[in-house]
Design a protein around this nucleic acid. Structure first.
Lengths: 244, 244
DNA sequence: GAACGAATAGATCATTTGATCACTAAAAAG
DNA sequence: CTTTTTAGTGATCAAATGATCTATTCGTTC
């Protein structure tokens, strides 16, 4: 079974990675117009730091699309560079993948979320709503969701690390606050929180993993999910707030 | 990067595929005790149909664990057969994978669910609860969830087919019935149904994809999720029913 | 016990793929 | 302009991998 071209594997994937620096020079091998003397690939010499970043960004988009087993040759040809150049910047494919994990991981969890969630000067519903708006802004990305899923399936450490942080920075405060505000006799437990979380995250999974239609604006859906949970514990939710 | 052994990729994966017919004969290459004259693999002659089924079952477990790019040599060594024998039963790895998809797909969706969900002689909550108990019994399986996720990520047709059926056999009836029973002014839409569905399915994802701890018995969690949705639309839910 | 054919052993092929290396040329320094 | 530096190239290696083929072995059936 000859491996199919990556572009064929996932036709629905977003166009090209947004790498501003590269003037999309297609690899010379692509259609050297019959008579034309195959023009050599224009060699572009970049400062190492810049090139390295460019490679990592492209690698994020690439591995998100085709999976972690994507071939280094395909990645390099997307970048318009030679495969061997990759090895000037990374010792091995594995270390490139580590850089990819690092890159998608960084900045994904805001350190301000615990404070936001615990800020009792705001209504609980508003805090949770704002948190999930920011959260989904951060993770409902093609690259992030798919790399996270790929790495989850192959048991990469990325996921365990992420869940630990998520628990600490978001889910734990979330549960504390809902517990403190709960009115009825049943107290929320962590599974109630996971239930809310899952119902929201599943929106992203539908969109970026299964590539199924989802609402353009997820905020009203998120708001309703929050309302449902809060009301279940007798907490006032107030009027709808999903404006612009 | 030499490919790591499949057993090393996913140490948390369930032990061995349940293949009753194979007397777990480890591949001869594994530890032929120093002095011992390498004993020939015990040859087992099976009727073609049986062998084919055995291969497919093992392939399901195998690809679920290591991904669809798993190597045929590893699969065959798990089965205790030669790699070339696989090609006596399947033209190519691709056709083997097709058989795998077929196998995991079959019997996953019960044709009786629409009738169950629409049976108004039962309380709505009970219908939904029974449906999701059966549904999660069917799909909260290591093999199914992972193969479904792998094939979703690579854009396999399996997923589209499955979602079409799911919509038709379960989600559409579900929405109809909840709409019919709804009391408040807001009518449920499909996103409300997806919300319930996602919150439940996410339990399986946490367990089998991310391999994170989840409750042993998911039924109480499912019941609460259903209650929340129904109450949100003013529908009576009655006392808890999550017994044995 | 003879015939059939499932299964093995294992060599082998053509590609693919991660990785290496000696050389080349673009940019910067003098 | 010349020299120096090093980013980038193209050829190539070794191992892996899907697939094929031959000769042989042995369990089943008649």
């Amino acid at each position: 079974m000859p491996r199919s071209q990556p572009s064929a594997i996932n036709p629905g994937a977003p166009a090209e990675p947004a790498i501003a620096e590269v003037p999309a020079t297609p690899p010379a091998a692509t259609q050297p117009a019959a008579a034309e003397p195959r023009r050599a690939r224009q060699r572009k010499r970049l400062p190492p730091e810049e090139r390295r970043l460019q490679i990592v960004q492209a690698a994020v988009a690439f591995f998100a699309e085709v999976g972690l087993e994507g071939r280094t040759r395909d990645l390099s040809s997307r970048l318009g560079i030679t495969q061997s150049l990759l090895y000037k910047y990374f010792d091995s494919k594995e270390s490139l993948l580590d850089a990819v994990f690092e890159h998608v991981y960084l900045g994904r969890l805001s350190p301000e979320w615990p404070a936001l969630l615990r800020d009792r000067s705001l209504p609980l519903k508003e805090r949770i709503f704002r948190f999930y708006c920011e959260y989904t802004d951060a993770i409902f990305r093609y690259e992030w969701l798919r790399i996270f899923m790929f790495s989850g399936l192959t048991g990469e450490k990325l996921n365990a690390r992420y869940f630990t942080h998520l628990q600490q920075f978001a889910l734990a405060p979330l549960m504390d606050e809902i517990q403190a505000a709960a009115q009825g006799e049943r107290r929320p437990d962590m599974e109630d929180i996971w239930n809310l979380h899952g119902s929201i995250v599943y929106l992203g999974i539908r969109k970026h993993i299964y590539q199924t239609p989802t609402p353009d604006d997820v905020r009203p859906v998120i708001e309703r999910a929050i309302d449902r949970l809060l009301r279940d514990f007798g907490i006032e939710t107030g009027p709808p707030m999903a404006g612009p």
